[in-house]
Computed example of a mutant assay.
Amino acid sequence: MKLNIKLTIMLLFTVLAFSCKNEEKGEDNNTAKTKDVSENLNISLLLDLSDRISPTKYPNPTMEYYLRDVGFINSVSEAFTEHVRSKKVIRAHDKIQLFFDPTPLNPEINKISKELKIEINKANDSKELIKNIKSIYANYPLKIYNLAIKDGNYIGSDIWRFFKTKINDYCVEKEYRNILVILTDGYIFYKDTQMKEENFTTYLTPESIKSNKLNSSEWNKKIIKQKLGFLKANNDLSNLEIFVLGINPNPKNPYEEDVIKTYWTNWFQSMKVKRFKIRNADLPSNMDKIIKDFISKKD
């Protein structure tokens, strides 16, 4: 009788141990599945095609600003393809695309931008496609900038309105890690989107910085005291990471860079942006690792 009781107890312990092990294994599988979903990349690039890219108005003997943009875009596309290459084909589910706001008047630019909207999935994932993505993103953006410069019709960039009316539909998707890369000099201005509520505005220009007297060491105190900043354009961007590249402050004001970055930082925080980084218009060779680290979450 005692022997039977002992055998029964041992059998129960074995069953319980086996069940617990299976539960743990199930949890690991669920965790892995969730992790895979969260690592589906949805990368959007928003280009500011205002006169900031003009080599005539803003020449730079070291490297023109539009060529720096092209270099930044190339780093983003390389990070994207490296990510896709690291995944198994069955788990491929990633997107990269490019936007402007407003849409350029040149139909050729819009035609090229459609070629830059690419989705990778298990049905089309291949080494040849990945190679094509690198080639497309290395060459097509340069064509866009050259066309915009040749036209000379710099209609500006309505970044604030893009955040207000388009960003959720264009750049944020469920079950993706959503990343928006904005290529801009940091100033925001569009002729048809000029609003002001108290001291919050939809624009920031060298002139507005000067008129608010943010050109002294007291600039931050003035921002806080006068409640200066961008008008909130969105209530919840908690599923979006943003990298702003190309900040190019007016060199006549030594505090301009700090003012620009503070405006953007406060704006992103008010809209609950999940994660963000703001960097100057440095040389692409210096920014390559920083860009790739941001996308791979190594920073």
Score class of each variant (00 low, 15 high):
269 Q>C: 13
266 N>A: 02
284 P>S: 04
287 M>H: 03
280 N>V: 04
281 A>H: 06
287 M>N: 07
261 K>N: 10
291 I>Q: 01
279 R>T: 12
290 I>Y: 10
268 F>D: 04
263 Y>T: 03
291 I>S: 01
290 I>S: 13
283 L>G: 01
275 R>M: 11
287 M>E: 14
261 K>D: 07
275 R>K: 15
262 T>I: 08
287 M>K: 14
280 N>F: 08
272 K>Q: 09
278 I>P: 04
279 R>W: 00
273 V>F: 07
288 D>M: 08
262 T>A: 08
292 K>A: 01
282 D>W: 08
275 R>P: 01
290 I>A: 13
267 W>P: 09
262 T>R: 12
261 K>E: 11
275 R>V: 03
283 L>P: 01
286 N>P: 01
283 L>R: 03
283 L>N: 06
269 Q>P: 07
292 K>V: 01
271 M>I: 04
265 T>K: 15
275 R>E: 12
265 T>H: 08
265 T>G: 01
293 D>T: 05
272 K>R: 14
266 N>L: 12
287 M>A: 11
270 S>I: 06
291 I>F: 02
268 F>A: 08
273 V>G: 03
284 P>I: 09
279 R>E: 14
278 I>M: 07
281 A>L: 11
282 D>L: 11
281 A>F: 08
271 M>V: 05
292 K>I: 00
293 D>I: 02
261 K>T: 12
264 W>A: 05
291 I>E: 00
269 Q>S: 15
269 Q>E: 15
267 W>T: 08
283 L>I: 08
273 V>E: 07
280 N>M: 13
293 D>Q: 10
288 D>S: 13
280 N>H: 07
276 F>R: 00
277 K>G: 14
280 N>P: 00
290 I>V: 14
262 T>P: 01
281 A>R: 04
279 R>N: 13
283 L>W: 04
279 R>D: 13
274 K>P: 01
276 F>T: 00
267 W>S: 11
261 K>C: 03
268 F>C: 06
263 Y>Q: 08
286 N>D: 10
290 I>C: 03
280 N>R: 11
282 D>Q: 10
267 W>E: 06
281 A>D: 15
261 K>G: 07
292 K>C: 01
284 P>E: 07
277 K>A: 14
272 K>E: 07
275 R>I: 03
274 K>I: 06
281 A>E: 05
285 S>G: 03
292 K>H: 02
289 K>I: 14
262 T>S: 12
273 V>C: 05
274 K>W: 09
286 N>S: 10
274 K>T: 02
276 F>S: 00
269 Q>T: 15
265 T>P: 02
287 M>Q: 15
272 K>N: 14
270 S>K: 13
283 L>S: 09
275 R>D: 11
270 S>R: 10
277 K>R: 12
276 F>Y: 15
266 N>Y: 13
279 R>A: 14
284 P>R: 03
282 D>M: 10
271 M>F: 06
278 I>F: 01
281 A>N: 15
285 S>L: 12
278 I>H: 04
280 N>E: 10
266 N>K: 14
267 W>V: 05
283 L>K: 09
272 K>F: 10
269 Q>D: 15
278 I>R: 07
277 K>M: 13
267 W>Y: 14
284 P>Q: 05
272 K>G: 01
272 K>W: 04
293 D>L: 00
266 N>V: 00
275 R>C: 07
292 K>L: 02
264 W>H: 13
284 P>L: 06
281 A>T: 04
261 K>F: 05
285 S>A: 11
